[in-house]
Design a protein around this nucleic acid. Structure first.
Length: 738
DNA sequence: ATTAGGCGATTTTTT
DNA sequence: ATCGCCTAAT
């Protein structure tokens, strides 16, 4: 038991309290991951078979890291451990048990984009206008209903308005269609196991006996469905250890319910509560800043974070003229830092609220030849050509997957148009067969052109052929041969445009990914690969060992640490993010996100904001974030590039005076001339600001949400209680400030 | 049936 | 600014 001496007393207690429910509230950098890994290692060490342990994490990456570490501690006997994300572990259980609730083991997993297209097709089938009712919004409603375990019929009974009625109607068909396709969406991966265990007590008991010790990471980010699932699994032995930090709960938008962690002691009355409050990660300055910020929140478990680390350097605030300047200034600081400390680029991370912000920063990095890796954003597996090819594989694996079938039935073009599809659908429905199946009986199909008929026959024989050879050749050969037969690669080559070349490369890359996957796991099936694609995210694949700066959203940054962290875009409307007025709870979630960002930093933290920023292709004027005021002046130093551009509340006269002042120091090159003159702007003359209340001749009173554009084309979006949101040209609107 | 060109929405965050 | 979707033209 040598390894326990790596732990402080609190951590040891968390590791050695093996029986009964236990909650570990772990502040940032307090060794949470360490506790989890050592606890598992300890269990195995004292003789618990690894196969009796279930550990659920938030990302696959966290799971893999821990697994490796555990192997180091106790060796190969840990291999039988069940560890992964909720979604991946449950997907695995559903492959085994799904037949009990009417799914075949080769079911397909739909991502949000797949769900959306299914919802759209249901809407058009039911004659619900996608103009009037936003399919995205309907998808989101259905998803959140599922997260709360509200079933279609329950939902239908509780509708409050027309939109919800339509949603209810779509929801019913959506679930039917998923089942018909032998497919599940992300939410089903949580829901269906609950259904399984409810209906099938024997199966539940089997898993009770298997998972005698359960550990949950990032408990603050679990939703209702996950909560119920954990309760079901743990109800017999009650050996459940949850680890989390309410202050780092940042997934409410996805249904995460912070009550799960706040009420743990209520749910398990004899629960042991352990707080880890010593921070090993950050300097005193950084930790104090984080602590000060989070104290502004009302909803939280009180904690006293402390550290023995040194005070370290002050936090540096970079006040920038615009997003381009922000990128340039960050680059300059990266230069300084890499020269000053012996630090590699992979010790540096740049974080932002929205993926769209990465662009200006990427430009700056590229201009200065600084290598970077970017996490998230437009994902490889979301690209059209990749999804198209994957759809072929999906159909091959699950012949009932109508959604994927529809995607590829006329790709590449086979002369199958909408009319033919309508006929095929009707035919399939009447026979209760899948579309692919129906396509094979295309001879009986009336009202279809010869061309379409031949096309359908072609698709059908194509799949018959590959179903047959599927088990005979390796999956990489199978996939390559299928792609070759489609002829899309030469098609891209012939097109010759840079865009087509990228597509060509992407398809090649997909094929290499499959090869690599099957080399890594000798028994891997195509089913396994497809599941991996659905459930693995960018962050899971990220490898911090390259010499490159890492760019990512604040959400992706959770669980990571870097010696140097930049948080960019500290502006109202961006961090905290809003498209309209925020209520307290929303601001608190944004603040937690900010807190997560701050606490990623070990040695040095930079914050930055831009006075102006391109959003939606227009210049928008930004106000520094309220979160900046929550830091103490003593711990902060400011580098100001924007002396010329005083705060927007200032009067015109002062601005004129300010214009003649020279900026103290030009930090970076070539980005100083893009700013428009403030003093000519209608908005500044009128003293209009985001959040101002104004009056309009016809619309009445309203509140300004955004201001964009320059000079004559300057526009404001105003929220009028009477008529809703309006985008107005200030030149004509004659707004009166109230 | 395919394609070009115009229009409108889109940007919150993700398993 | 960019992407997807729709319409009109071929």
């Amino acid at each position: 038991m040598q390894f326990l001496k790596d732990l402080n007393p609190k951590q040891q207690e968390a590791v050695k309290t093996v029986e009964g429910p236990i909650m570990v509230v772990a502040g940032p950098g307090s060794g949470k991951t360490r506790v989890l890994t050592y606890r598992i290692a300890y269990l195995i060490h004292i003789g618990v078979p690894a196969s009796n342990i279930l550990a659920l994490t938030f990302t696959n990456r966290a799971a893999n890291e821990m697994k490796e570490r555990i192997v180091q501690l106790v060796g190969d006997k840990s291999k039988q451990l069940w560890m992964g994300t909720f979604h991946s572990v449950l997907a695995k259980i559903l492959r085994i048990e799904g037949e009990k609730i009417g799914y075949e083991r080769n079911y397909t997993i739909y991502d949000s984009a797949d769900s959306l297209s299914l919802i759209k097709s249901i809407m058009s089938a039911k004659g619900i206008s996608t103009q009037q009712f936003n399919p995205q919004a309907i998808r989101a409603r259905i998803s959140s209903a599922k997260n709360q375990l509200v079933m279609p019929d329950d939902y239908a009974r509780r509708t409050l308005d027309l939109f919800e009625e339509k949603t209810a109607a779509v929801y019913v068909d959506y679930q039917k269609q998923l089942k018909h396709n032998n497919a599940m969406d992300f939410d089903d991966l949580l829901l269906k196991p609950i259904e399984l265990f409810d209906r099938n007590k024997k199966t539940l008991e089997k898993y009770h006996d298997r998972f005698r010790f359960i550990l949950i990471d990032e408990y603050q980010d679990t939703n209702r469905a996950q909560y119920i699932l954990i309760r079901l699994l743990a109800e017999k032995h009650k050996n459940i250890c949850v680890v989390g930090d309410d202050a780092q709960s940042i997934y409410a938008f996805r249904g995460a319910d912070i009550r799960n962690i706040l009420d743990f002691e209520h749910d398990y009355p004899d629960a042991r509560l352990i707080r880890l409050e010593q921070n090993y990660r950050s300097t005193k300055t950084i930790l104090d800043a984080a602590d000060r910020v989070i104290k502004h929140n009302v909803d939280q478990i009180a904690k006293d974070l402390w550290t023995q680390n040194q005070a370290g350097e002050k936090i540096t605030l970079l006040a920038c003229a615009d997003d381009r300047d922000e990128g340039g200034t960050i680059v300059q600081k990266i230069y300084e830092e890499t020269h000053r400390r012996k630090i590699d680029l992979n010790g540096i991370a740049i974080m932002y609220r929205t993926n769209a912000q990465s662009r200006a920063i990427e430009d700056a990095l590229r201009r200065n030849s600084i290598p970077y890796v970017i996490i998230g954003g437009i994902e490889f597996y979301q690209r059209k050509e990749v999804k198209d090819v994957l759809a072929y594989f999906r159909v091959l694996v699950n012949l009932r997957d109508d959604e994927s079938f529809l995607r590829i039935v006329n790709y590449p073009s086979r002369g199958i148009g909408e009319a033919a599809i309508v006929r095929l659908r009707a035919f399939a429905n009447s026979k209760q067969r899948s579309l692919l199946d129906a396509a094979s009986g295309v001879g009986d199909l009336p009202g279809v052109t010869t061309k379409a008929r031949n096309g359908l026959r072609e698709v059908s024989t194509l799949f018959q052929k590959y179903v047959q050879i599927k088990s005979e050749i390796s999956i990489s050969e199978l996939c390559r041969s299928l792609v070759d037969e489609l002829g899309i690669l030469p098609m891209f080559k012939n097109e010759g445009t840079p865009d087509a070349m990228t597509r060509w490369e992407n398809v090649q890359e997909l094929l290499s990914a499959i090869t690599e996957f099957s080399e890594r796991r000798s028994d891997a099936t195509l089913e396994d690969f497809l599941q991996d694609v659905s459930l693995v995210s960018d962050i899971d694949e990220w490898d911090g060992s390259h010499n490159a700066v890492t760019l990512m959203t604040l959400h992706s940054a959770k669980g990571l640490e870097f010696p140097i962290v930049f948080i960019s875009g500290l502006e109202e409307g961006l961090l905290p993010f809003s498209n309209s007025a925020l209520d307290r709870k929303e601001v608190e979630e944004e603040r937690r996100l900010y807190y997560v960002g701050i606490t990623r930093a070990m040695e040095k933290l930079y914050l930055s904001y831009a006075r102006a920023r391109y959003r939606f292709g227009e210049v928008t004027y930004q106000t520094p974030s309220r979160f900046l005021e929550e830091l103490s002046d003593a711990s902060l130093e400011t580098i100001n590039n924007v002396q010329r551009y005083p705060a927007r509340t200032h009067h015109v006269n002062e601005e004129n005076a300010a214009r003649h002042r020279k900026p103290p120091k030009q930090v970076d090159h070539d980005h100083s001339d893009v700013m428009p003159d403030y003093e000519n702007d209608t908005a500044s003359c009128l003293n209009l600001r985001i959040g101002s209340f104004v009056e309009h001749e016809t619309f009445g009173k309203g509140k300004i949400l955004t201001i964009a554009g320059v000079g004559d084309s300057m526009k404001a979006v105003v929220d009028f209680p009477s008529v809703g949101r309006k985008s107005l040209l200030l030149q004509y609107a004659h707004l009166k400030v109230l």
